[in-house]
Amino acid sequence: MERLYATSDLYGTEGLLTEGELGRLRALRRVLDDEVRPILADHWERAESPVHLRAPLAALRLADDPAILDADGRARELYLGFRTFEFARTDVSVGILYGGQVGMFRTLVREGGSPEQVAAWDPRIVSFEMTGAFAMTEPEHGSDVARGLETRARRVGDRWVLHGRKRWIGNAAFSEYLVVLARDEADGEVKAFLARTDAPGMRLAKIERKASLRLVHNSDIELDGVQVPESHRLQRIDSFGDVAAIMRTLRPDAAWVAAGLQAGAYEAALRHATRREQFGRPIAGFQLVQDKLVRMLGNVTASLAMLVQLAAVRQRGVLRDEDSALAKTWVAARMRETVALAREVVGGDGIMIDHDVARFFTDAESVYTFEGTHEINTLIVGRAITGHSAFVR
């Protein structure tokens, strides 16, 4: 059978995947090629999220097919990474539409909820019957949200009352629930609440005029006395440390996104170079174009090598912040170079949405920043290797 990533995975790292895992990725590729690619340019132009894709994506069972699960009902780190890679190779926004639900929202519930909560909600989350998003970032607190979180919660009987604001919350407008982080007024600790988006006092406003990730609907959110029953507080989250431990399991995702985006940009540039003719021959035959293509492929190859090894380390149960931080900051930096080179190869057409490269180019700026900026991730690694924290206190 033809290799799935023959163009951009020069060293064949996909060979480390099982046949069951490759089968799910091939099924995803078919949906992305047949149902997603044809609509990307129009949806990007209109800044419209293709929410209708949730049903066909859920039907693929990318998260719960027995062929990709171990005895504990969990998928391997390498498969999860390549699943993210495959989405980003086509479009990061569509990956967020899926991953925000089955990756972020599901993991918070699965790791932060009580056994009873997980049993009741997890199957419904995987099937997209119960939809959700994660509301952590605030208007004045992004990188410093651990200490600066201002949204507050007050317990009144068997209910909690939430007050505060959140910003940049992706998928919120299409979700039934938000996992809202709020600081308990009684003990000052951060707790997590499943708040309904249609609850009285919950107001969502779409963030307009974005130049990047235009298919993702991000929301500004105001919570004015929003009530949540104690039964919808995630029972195993009693501090920001608990949240950080859960996020540690998700942190490699951003690096896999950056790698997949690079692969998409490289493949788009290569297609263009082999078709576009100047001076009587394809530009792929020009030395300087080949130099750019080789540098792009080198970046993708090195990024995959780092991430495959990271997956192997994490599969052994080693979950260190510095490992994911190094991968995110390094792969995202290579991504910035790769998309810039792709834009150069495609020339004037590189600013046209129909040529894909423009979308990868602009989306890369969001990926470079989210899930920890270059500076924050650098300081996490710096602290680990020197033993000295350079964070401002």
Rank of each mutant, 00 (worst) to 15 (best):
F391T: 04
F360V: 02
K166L: 00
H141L: 01
W121Q: 09
R314T: 08
E230D: 15
W168Q: 04
F361G: 01
E150A: 14
R271W: 11
G348H: 08
A255Y: 12
Q227S: 10
V331L: 10
R271G: 12
E138W: 07
A284E: 05
F286S: 10
F370T: 04
A265G: 05
A182G: 04
R359F: 01
A358W: 00
S127F: 06
A332Y: 13
L80T: 15
Q315A: 15
S114D: 03
G280N: 10
V367L: 03
A268L: 04
R281S: 12
Q117C: 05
R152W: 04
T329S: 12
D323Q: 14
I376T: 11
R26Q: 10
P56F: 09
D34L: 07
A302M: 13
R336P: 01
S175N: 05
L53N: 02
V161S: 11
D224A: 13
R248E: 15
A244F: 08
D122Q: 07
A263G: 07
L297G: 11
Q262C: 11
D34G: 05
T131Q: 13
E150H: 13
S127C: 03
L326S: 09
A88V: 04
I68T: 14
E222D: 14
V94R: 01
T131R: 13
T369A: 07
D253C: 02
G285S: 10
V331M: 08
G95Y: 03
A311Q: 12
D70H: 10
I169F: 07
L270I: 07
H232S: 04
A120D: 14
R359M: 02
M104P: 03
H163Q: 09
L97D: 00
E21N: 05
H355C: 02
R154G: 01
R89I: 00
A55I: 01
L28K: 07
V294A: 12
A258S: 14
T13Q: 13
Y177M: 05
T137R: 09
V392Y: 15
H141A: 08
S114W: 08
L22K: 12
S212T: 12
D34H: 13
G95R: 02
A244E: 10
A273V: 08
R124M: 12
R26C: 02
L310M: 15
R24C: 07
E14D: 14
G100W: 08
V331G: 06
Q262K: 08
I246F: 09
V392S: 14
D42T: 03
V243Y: 15
R29I: 00
V156G: 05
T338Q: 08
L4W: 00
L4K: 00
S49Q: 01
Y79M: 05
I380R: 10
A63F: 14
A284Q: 07
A192E: 02
A199L: 06
L97N: 03
G112Y: 11
P200D: 13
G317T: 10
R251D: 08
I353L: 09
E111N: 05
Q117A: 06
A55T: 11
R336M: 15
G201V: 03
G112R: 05
E35M: 11
I125H: 13
V145R: 06
I125A: 12
M202Q: 05
E230Y: 07
